[in-house]
Deep mutational scan, measured.
Amino acid sequence: SELMNSSKLIRMLEEDGWRLVRVTGSAHHFKHPKKPGLVTVPHPKKDLPIGTVKSIQKSAGL
């Protein structure tokens, strides 16, 4: 199965306009000026399962 580095996923979010608002432990929480909701990324993780990545991307509207 495909894995993604959390840094790469965070870069994709930031390029889309998401900004880090809070860190709780290894959970990084992002908000967007125009899009609704809060997106949480486990970080640092070298090997996020593709299912997790897809669900984060979906929440972020990517």
Rank of each mutant, 00 (worst) to 15 (best):
Q57S: 08
K31H: 08
L38N: 08
V53G: 02
D47A: 12
D16I: 05
V39Q: 03
K46W: 09
G37H: 07
V23G: 04
G17A: 03
I10R: 02
L48P: 02
K35Q: 03
S26F: 11
L20N: 05
K35V: 03
S59L: 15
T40D: 05
I50Y: 08
P49V: 04
H43W: 05
I10V: 05
L9V: 08
K45E: 10
E14I: 11
L20V: 11
G37T: 05
L48G: 01
T24V: 12
K34D: 13
H29T: 15
K35N: 03
R19S: 11
K54I: 13
N5Q: 14
L48V: 09
N5I: 14
R22M: 12
V23Q: 10
P33W: 07
P36I: 07
G37C: 07
P44Q: 03
G51S: 13
I10W: 02
S7I: 10
L9W: 03
K45D: 09
K54S: 10
S1N: 14
V53H: 03
I50S: 10
L3P: 15
K58D: 12
L62M: 09
V41A: 01
K46Y: 13
P36D: 07
V41K: 00
E2M: 07
S7N: 10
V39A: 04
F30W: 02
W18Y: 03
K8G: 10
M4Q: 13
D16Y: 06
A27N: 14
K46L: 15
I56C: 02
L38S: 08
T40H: 10
L38A: 07
E14C: 09
R11N: 12
P42A: 05
M12I: 11
A60H: 02
R19N: 11
W18R: 00
G25D: 15
G25Q: 14
S6E: 02
S1F: 04
H29I: 15
S55K: 13
H43P: 01
L38D: 07
K34S: 10
S59P: 01
E14P: 00
E2C: 10
S55R: 12
E14F: 08
V53T: 06
I10C: 05
G61M: 04
L3W: 07
D47T: 11
T24Q: 09
S7P: 04
P49H: 07
A60L: 04
L3N: 14
M4K: 07
L20K: 06
S55Q: 14
H28T: 05
P44S: 06
G17P: 00
G17T: 01
P33C: 10
I50H: 10
S1V: 14
I10D: 01
H28L: 06
